[in-house]
Write a protein that binds this DNA or RNA. Structure first.
Lengths: 152, 152
DNA sequence: CATTTTTTGTTTCCTTGTCAACAAAAATTA
DNA sequence: TAATTTTTGTTGACAAGGAAACAAAAAATG
C-alpha cells in the first residue's frame, strides 16, 4: 500500500470512528431530533436568512430534501420561514428560541467531544501544523479539479 | 478557530470534495449500479466468504440492510450466496464473474481517481510522512475511546 | 443430554433522501 | 416592454436504510 492509499485508508477509519463516537453522545442528549435535523439547525443557526437552494448546496443534499426537512423543522417548532417583500420566489429561514436551544446544546456537545480528543492535538502540536498545511494544499488542489470538471 | 477545529473543518471539506469528484466518474462508468451496491461488491470481492453480520459491521450498516442488499445483488447477478454444510445458520457470499467485472472496473476507477491526485502526494512527500503518523496516532487514540465506551 | 441463551438472518413498518415533473417568480433577451 | 429563459421551491413516486419483532440454528449451561 503506497502513501496515498494509506492516507485514504487512515482517513476513512478515522471518520468512521468519529461518527460512531459522536452518535451516542447526540442520541443521549438530543433524543427527540435526528442527526440530519440537528445538522440543518446547526447550519441555519450559523447562516441565518439563507434560502432553500443555498442550504441544499451547502449540505450536499437536493432542494427537495431541504424543502421537506424545513417543513419538519417548522412542525417541530425549531425554525421559522419567511419571504422578503422584494423577493416572493425565495424562502428564507431562521431559528426559533426552541431551535436556538437545540443549536446551543449541539454546540456544547461538539465542544465536549472535541475536548475528549484534546490531548491528541496538544501532545502533537508540531505535527498538526504540517497536517493542516497539507490538508489545505489538498483542498485547494481539489477545488481546481472541481472547477475543471464543472466546465465540461 | 483553534487547530482542532481547523482540522475538523479541513477534513470535512476534503471528504465532501472527494465524494463529489468520484461520484461523477463512477456514475459515468458504472451507470447501472448504485454506489452502495458497488461498495458492497468491493467488500465481498476483497473479503470472500464473509457472512451478513460481518459485512454489516464492516460497512457500518444494519444486518437488515445487508440482507436486502444481498438479494438485490443476487438478482442483478453480481454475487452468489451459499451455506456451509456444517453451519446452516450463517450465509456466505462470493462474486460471480459479472460481479468480478464490476469489481475490476471499480478498482480501475479508484486507481484512476488516485492518479488524479498523485502530484499532491509526490510534491509533498515529506509532509505525508508526518500526516500519516498523526492519523495513525489519532486512530489508535479513538480505538481506546471506543473500547471504553463499549464497556459502559 | 435437555434446556436456556445467544447468534444469525429475514421481514415489516417507518423515515428520509433522490429524481423528475411542475408552477411561480425573477432575470434575461430581443 | 413583451417574450423567453432561468431560477426557485414543492410535490409525488420511488429507493434505501434503520429499528424492532421474529424464526431458525448454534452455543452455552446445568
Amino acid at each position: 500500500m503506497n502513501k496515498q492509499e494509506q492516507f485514504q485508508s487512515e482517513l476513512n477509519m478515522l471518520l468512521d470512528k468519529m461518527t460512531l463516537l459522536s452518535q451516542d453522545t447526540f442520541k443521549a442528549e438530543l433524543p427527540d431530533y435526528k442527526s440530519s435535523e440537528v445538522h440543518t439547525v446547526e447550519f441555519i443557526g450559523k447562516h441565518a436568512d439563507s434560502n432553500v437552494t443555498t442550504i441544499a448546496n451547502s449540505l450536499y443534499v437536493t432542494k427537495g430534501a431541504v424543502s421537506k426537512m424545513s417543513k419538519r423543522l417548522i412542525n417541530k417548532g425549531l425554525i421559522e420561514s419567511y419571504r422578503d417583500k422584494d423577493n416572493q420566489k425565495e424562502r428564507y429561514f431562521h431559528l426559533t428560541p426552541k431551535g436556538q436551544e437545540v443549536f446551543d446544546i449541539h454546540e456544547r456537545l461538539t465542544k465536549q467531544i472535541m475536548q475528549r480528543d484534546e490531548s491528541v492535538f496538544k501532545d502533537n502540536a508540531d505535527q498538526i501544523k504540517v497536517v493542516l498545511k497539507f490538508l489545505k494544499t489538498y483542498n485547494i488542489y481539489l477545488d481546481k479539479e472541481l472547477s475543471e470538471t464543472k466546465n465540461k
